[in-house]
Computed example of a mutant assay.
Amino acid sequence: MKFFDIARSRRSAISVAIVPLAVAMLSAGSVGAADAAPDAAGAGGPAKIELQGAVNVRDLGGYRTYDGAKVKSGKVIRSDALGKLTDADVQKLGSLHLQTVIDLRTPAEVQALGADRLPSGVPLVARAIDDTGMFTKMYQAIGSKDPVQQEALLGGGKAEQIMGDVYRSFFTPDSLTKFGQSVRDLANTGNATLFHCTAGKDRTGWLSYVTLRAIGVPEGTARQDYLLSNQYRAAADAALRAQLKQGGIMQNPDLLIPLQEVREDYLNIAVSQVDSQFGDFGKFLTQGLGLDAGTILKLRKNLVS
């Protein structure tokens, strides 16, 4: 059912049907997936994995480390949520020889958006990392259909504050433990390990950034990978905003842009937290994520050729 069809239905139907669909569209590749940005990494960067039901999917192989080595392909895949995959998408994932899929979403996100669709026999690890209520706040704002309430919830820099809180929350003891365990999993992966959150850009983006830096990829390159989500998600995110406006759900859907994007300012919040809380990135790996030197060495040996 399209948004303009739903918008003509009763208000009670709107409250039941529009809100889950709108929030799902914020994260899934169901809007404009076929028109998503092409692989923007270029030579020496990661390979985009084209799927119809997810738009922010890529193999982290191909990046160069400080010493000229190369990150292996077929080891680490990052993505957005996999609940909207088509049968063809599932078949394509099956060709990647996935060893494990790590789902970083909260139970509320999984309930609203649906469990992952995975190839038969691929183990799923549910490792929820708190989003500080971002998903619920976005759900509430869209579902209200009230421009005044939407402005109050997201306008005047409030959306940016929500995102800042998300990045600061990466340093709670629970989040540090779960990010650390995910890095350990990558140190031990034989075939590919895929990890994802909802949009594949914040929790997933931070885990990717940390992993790349831990194996010797320059900070600037890891940062570029983080920002690449904006290109991969651009078409789907813009299409969502257009449909929300057309359907009368949001008078000003641009209020969602700070929640849809990754920004250097967001990443800098986490990087500054590393420096202020641990002193440097190396101590963050050992004291923050609980990785010993042997695990870090094993991670690099496993992921770098």
Rank of each mutant, 00 (worst) to 15 (best):
Q181C: 06
I142Y: 00
D131S: 02
L124H: 08
F171A: 08
A128F: 01
T177P: 12
E160H: 12
S169A: 10
Q181M: 08
K178R: 15
N191T: 13
L176F: 03
A128I: 02
L124N: 10
I129D: 08
I142D: 00
L153C: 03
D185F: 15
R184T: 02
A187D: 09
Q161N: 11
L176T: 06
M138I: 15
I162C: 10
V125L: 15
P123T: 13
K145I: 14
M138R: 10
G157S: 06
A159E: 06
D185T: 15
P123Y: 05
R127H: 08
A126T: 10
L153Q: 06
I142G: 00
P123H: 08
G180H: 12
I129V: 13
A126G: 08
Q140C: 06
P123M: 07
V166H: 07
P123C: 06
T136C: 01
S175E: 03
S144T: 04
G190L: 15
Q181R: 10
Q161A: 13
G133D: 14
N188V: 04
M134Q: 14
A159G: 13
R168G: 12
A192T: 14
G133V: 13
Q140W: 01
P123F: 04
K178F: 01
D174Q: 14
M163S: 06
G190C: 14
K137T: 14
A159N: 08
L186S: 06
Q149F: 04
K145Y: 13
G190K: 13
L154E: 11
P147G: 03
Q161H: 12
F135K: 07
T193K: 09
P147L: 02
G180R: 08
V148N: 14
R184I: 02
I142P: 00
I142V: 04
Y167M: 01
N191A: 15
F135D: 12
S169R: 03
F170A: 11
S144D: 08
N188A: 10
M134T: 15
N191E: 15
I142A: 00
T189M: 06
A128R: 07
P173M: 04
G164W: 07
I142F: 00
